[in-house]
Simulated scan of single mutants.
Amino acid sequence: MERHISNLKQLGAKEYRFSISWARLCPTGKCADAKDHEKRGIDHYHSFLDLLHAAGIEPFVTLFHWDLPQALQDEYNGWESAKIVDDFADYVRLVFREYGDRVKNWITLNEAELGFWADPIYLTGDYPESILKRYNDSILQRFTDEQKQQNKGSADFFGLNTYTTQLVTDGDKDGKNKGVDWTGHTCPQWPQAGSEWLFSVPWGFRRLLKYIDNRYDSTAVPIFVTENGISSTGNGTDSKPELNDQWRIDHFTSYIGQMRRAIEEDGANVQVYTAWSLMDNFEWSDGYRDRFGLIWTDFSSENRTTLFKQSARFYSDLIQVFL
């Protein structure tokens, strides 16, 4: 932990987003009873938050980042069951009770996919019309009028994870489905990242910020960019790390430049920008192959040695400009 905080301080970072692992605090997924708490996990986050506070770094904490305790999946299929609501609420109460005095910025779920989640919270209280048309009551439980009122306006900021852009056409040739089905396209001229799904499309970022501002009113609910970055695959090895990543610097320069245009020319109220990620890490099904980090991680070394890439030094200089 100390090394990571030291790296953040060297970067000059004033905020850091990370996620708390539900299973690390309550391995069974049940947090209502203290006997099911894992003290080592709870203490770990206390220590980490204390270090962040001492370094003057503001934490942004995500409550759920796709790591559902296996016991709840086995018991009732996890998020497919309404039973998850009470167990998640008990987990959140534990987190707030333990860490609420040091964390002001909370993110409920990682990467909630925009309209499907955003319309109920920031606009109407209900799902978008296209979703209601696509899914029947047996698949998508409808909100009650009371729930719609509870949904609407229940967030203080608009958390945005964004990486790439696609051109979209109506999936129905006669164009009658009105957005219920669609086909995504990419352009051969767009620079492709190591991740096969990720293309660097800076102008798409600006358009997205402008769309969010227009649809959800970022004046009332500011936009926090909680993830944005680009990956490499197969560039460098642990014995010969790729530290000169000018292509990543180009990506951040273009994306942050388009964000600034969205702010200054389009009026989007963007207040936070967080690069993904501080260091190379485990990227889900892609494992350690795809490297998003500003800092190189040597996965073959016992203590996971880290080295600053050129993009880290660029980002550090950039941070100072905006402080």
Rank of each mutant, 00 (worst) to 15 (best):
133 K>L: 05
119 D>G: 03
147 Q>E: 14
134 R>A: 11
139 I>P: 07
132 L>A: 15
117 W>A: 15
125 G>S: 05
148 K>R: 15
145 D>V: 07
126 D>A: 12
136 N>W: 01
137 D>V: 13
126 D>W: 11
147 Q>H: 04
128 P>K: 03
124 T>G: 08
129 E>L: 08
130 S>P: 00
127 Y>V: 05
128 P>L: 02
113 E>C: 09
146 E>R: 14
121 I>L: 07
133 K>M: 13
113 E>H: 14
141 Q>I: 09
126 D>S: 12
113 E>G: 15
132 L>M: 14
131 I>G: 02
113 E>L: 07
128 P>Q: 09
139 I>F: 15
115 G>S: 14
134 R>P: 00
144 T>G: 01
137 D>L: 13
143 F>D: 05
138 S>L: 11
149 Q>F: 10
120 P>E: 08
115 G>Y: 10
111 E>M: 09
137 D>F: 11
143 F>I: 02
114 L>H: 10
144 T>L: 01
147 Q>P: 03
120 P>W: 03
127 Y>L: 09
110 N>A: 11
119 D>C: 06
142 R>K: 10
111 E>G: 01
126 D>Q: 13
119 D>S: 05
139 I>C: 09
114 L>P: 10
149 Q>P: 03
127 Y>I: 06
145 D>F: 00
130 S>R: 14
140 L>G: 05
135 Y>K: 05
120 P>Q: 08
122 Y>S: 02
149 Q>H: 12
134 R>M: 10
122 Y>T: 04
110 N>T: 12
109 L>C: 03
123 L>T: 07
146 E>I: 08
112 A>W: 06
149 Q>G: 12
119 D>R: 04
131 I>M: 12
135 Y>P: 01
133 K>Y: 05
137 D>K: 15
145 D>M: 04
138 S>V: 09
142 R>N: 00
148 K>C: 03
141 Q>H: 12
139 I>G: 04
111 E>D: 10
144 T>V: 00
129 E>A: 14
119 D>I: 10
143 F>C: 02
147 Q>I: 03
147 Q>A: 08
115 G>V: 09
110 N>C: 07
132 L>F: 07
144 T>W: 06
130 S>V: 08
128 P>Y: 03
117 W>N: 13
139 I>D: 13
110 N>D: 04
115 G>F: 12
141 Q>M: 13
138 S>A: 10
143 F>P: 06
122 Y>H: 07
114 L>Q: 13
138 S>I: 04
116 F>V: 14
121 I>W: 00
141 Q>V: 12
117 W>L: 15
130 S>G: 00
128 P>G: 09
139 I>K: 07
130 S>T: 12
149 Q>D: 09
145 D>K: 14
116 F>W: 11
116 F>Q: 10
121 I>F: 03
143 F>E: 04
140 L>T: 01
140 L>A: 03
115 G>L: 09
113 E>V: 14
126 D>N: 15
134 R>S: 06
140 L>K: 03
